[in-house]
Structures are given as C-alpha cells and as structure tokens.
Amino acid sequence: MKNSVSTWMHKRPKLRLTALLAAPTLWLVVAYLGALGALLITAFFTIDNFTGNIIAKFNLGNFHDILTDPAYRNVVLRTLGIAVSVTIICAVLAVPMAFFMAKIAKQKSQKILVALVLTPLWASYLVKIYAWRTMLEPNTGVMDWILGPIGIHSPGFGGPAIIIGLSYLWLPYMILPIYAGLERLPNSLLDASGDLGARNFYTFRRVVLPLIFPSLVAGSMFTFSLSLGDYITAQIIGGKLQMLGNVVYQNFSINLPFAATIATIPVAIMAIYLWLIRRTGALASL
C-alpha cells in the first residue's frame, strides 16, 4: 500500500509539487500576505471621531496628513539615517571580526569565538538595552566611569545612543553570515592572490570583498530592517527622539488607519531594498 502510493506519487511530479507547495504557500499568502494586505487597505480608511470605530470608506486623508506635515518627513529621514548608520557600523565591526574568526583563528578557538559571538543573542533584548542605559548614563554611567579618565564621554541619550544600542543588538546577525561566507571561501584563493604579488589590502578589496558581498548584504537585511522597525530602543535610550516604529505603535490602537498609513512607509522602503538586492544572491544567504 505504502509502496504503491509512493510509486503513484513519483509518476506524477505535478501532484508532488502541489503537495509540497500547498501548505507553505497557503500559509504565506493567506496568513501573512492577506493580513498585510488588509492592513494596507485600512490605510485608506478613516475612523469615527466619536467612537474610534473604523469607517470603511475610501479616502486619502491619512496620506495627505503624512505628506503635508514635515514631522513625518523628519521621522522617516531620521529612521533611515539610523538604520543606515547601524548597518555601516555593524559591517565595519563585523568584517574584520568574521575574517579573524574564519581565516586566522585556530580551529579550536574558532569554535569558541563563534560561541562568544552567539551568546548575547540569548540575553533578552530588553535587558541588553537597559544595560546600555546603565552604560551611557551621562556622568554616572559605565562608559564615563571607564573611558572618562582618557577623555571619552558618553554621548548621552539620543540619536547616537540609539545607533550604538541597535548596532549592539544586531551585530551578531551581521557577523554570522559573513563568517559563514568566509568559511566557504577556499584559503587557496587568498594564497593565489598573495602569490601573484597582491598586498593584503589589495587581496581583501579585489578578491575577498566581492566574494563575501552577498553575505554582507544578507547581514544588512537584518541590521537594516530590524533597525527600521524598532521602537523599544528609542523609548529606552532615545532621549526625546522617536523612530517610525514609535509613531506606528502610538497610533495603532486609537487610529489604526493612520498607523497603517505610516506602516506603508517602511514597507515601501523594504520593498525597494529587496528589489535592489535581489540580484546579489543575498536572499539565499540569510
């Protein structure tokens, strides 16, 4: 019986394909895309000023409000600036670390280093951000306590603090894909470049960097998109700054249509981002 079903299936590739695809497609399209679509449609609705109930009547009022109020342009630019800075900082920190882990450290210490980089992922997000509060507290924080004597002071709470905090949170997500990419890179390639007379940096720039570029982009997906949607870090160490996520969160329950309108902004940004990087092969390196 089992045998015959299996043979029967084997002879019908279309059927097998359907069986394989049905559940995941249904899940992603119905549970995810459907929910997302419903939300984006809500962006064109409005609410009853008295009861707060949603009125399902098409209008562009929310978009008009967002486009005419410079505050929303500010928050979009600020959030983008933060997300880009976080991505750059993570990349700058991650590339040498991943290179050291993959190509210089001995086999045994390699394992330990990977573990050391992974460990903070298991300490809770919130706890880590609160630790950064203790770190960055002006005058009485850990940073001023350690680095104050050599003249480096905490930037206080605000934009720089958000960038530091988010870089800290997402750094492992950048290191690991790059490390995996470098590990796949045969040592012989670097040797060949060296044998041909290339200097360290030249080898790195012309040989290593192009090859790990997809991994770098894959890591940036995490650092960029996670930063783009964050609102908790800004609440805790952002001083008086807000990010896009805060605005969405603030409006979510009182005025869902308006929150949905704001939410279209990061969706659009990520859509453009995905479109730009789809050729790099990064999506498969996540």
């Binding site: 505050a71 929303y72 928050v75 807000q242 605005v247 409006n251 308006f258």
Partner: peptide, 13 residues
C-alpha cells in the same frame, strides 16, 4: 485621535 496625531507630529517636528 487628533491628540495622538498632534503628539506624533510634535515629537518628530
């Protein structure tokens, strides 16, 4: 609901 919008706007102006 307009208070909320005004607050978002104020915080990001």
């Amino acid at each position: 609901s307009e208070w909320v919008k005004a607050w978002s706007s104020l915080r990001n102006a």
